[in-house]
């Protein structure tokens, strides 16, 4: 059984203009997989399409061998898929507690126990549970976003650039926390620009170029792969 399998996926915002063009990916249970690639490669669109936020025009998505292709985002949350968007990933007008509490009510999980478990995992959040989420600092906000996505005890947790906007030190703390999350049995897929930080915690990585998977390998192999480095170098040159 694979935790998440993507087969020849095609997806995009406008019909006839796919941004993800034939991507395939298989994620084993309890694995951490980093999806890498130059800017505009379609990484973000890929996980949004998996999460049901971007229309899929071809291909398949399987969650624990169940076909979830094209299902609405809110159904997927109930099916055990957690998603942490890159920005605006907490409800700023609700308190920390209400962010988690709302998710628990919606997903119909035993509230008290689940929140206690999450507060154990994220003690910083427990200390200020009445604080409005909009008042949180970047790092804490990211922690709350992860905690919120974990409320429904998802089988697979997907994160869109969790390092974005964080200082290197905070990136370290957040990524450490992802290892703790994995230790609770969750499978993790993260899209990252920060290749070094991502490969440091990932088991495997997949490099996306122009909407399709170009290279797949273990994190160690990818970290030393000159081709991967070249892709990013090329991008930096083109981008400047």
């Amino acid at each position: 059984m694979t935790a998440l399998r993507v087969v020849d996926l095609e997806a995009g915002y406008e019909p006839g203009l796919p941004i993800v063009r034939g991507t395939s990916l298989a994620v084993e249970p309890n694995e951490i997989v980093a999806v890498l690639g130059p800017n505009g490669a379609g990484k973000s669109t890929l996980i949004k399409a998996i999460a049901g936020l971007v229309p899929v025009s071809a291909g398949k998505v399987l969650l624990h061998d169940r076909d979830i292709t094209g299902r609405a985002a809110h159904h997927l949350a109930h099916e055990g898929l957690g998603f942490v968007p890159q920005t605006e990933n907490v409800f700023v007008n609700l308190s920390i507690e209400d962010n988690l509490d709302l998710a628990a009510s919606i997903l119909k999980v035993p509230k008290k126990q689940r929140l206690r478990d999450l507060y154990d995992l994220f003690p910083d959040l427990a200390r200020q549970r009445r604080l409005l989420a909009g008042r949180l600092s970047g790092g804490q906000r990211q922690m709350l976003a992860v905690a919120r996505a974990l409320v429904g005890e998802p089988k697979v947790l997907m994160l869109d650039e969790p390092s974005a906007g964080l200082s290197p030190k905070l990136v370290g703390i957040v990524f450490e926390k992802l290892l703790d999350v994995r230790a609770t049995g969750v499978t993790i897929v993260l899209v990252e620009q920060n290749v070094k930080a991502a490969l440091a915690i990932a088991d495997r990585g997949a490099v996306l170029v122009e909407g399709s998977t170009r290279i797949v390998g273990t994190a160690r192999d990818l970290a030393g792969d000159p081709q991967v480095a070249a892709l990013y170098l090329g991008q930096h040159r083109g981008g400047s």
Binding site: G52, A72, H74, A77, F91, N93, L102, I106, G152
Partner: peptide
């Protein structure tokens, strides 16, 4: 609460499992 959540962030509401 789901209404308040949806009003500030519909996309996040959806991934949280709220039927918009």
């Amino acid at each position: 609460k789901a209404m308040r959540a949806t009003s500030v962030n519909p996309q996040l509401a959806r991934v949280t499992g709220i039927d918009v």
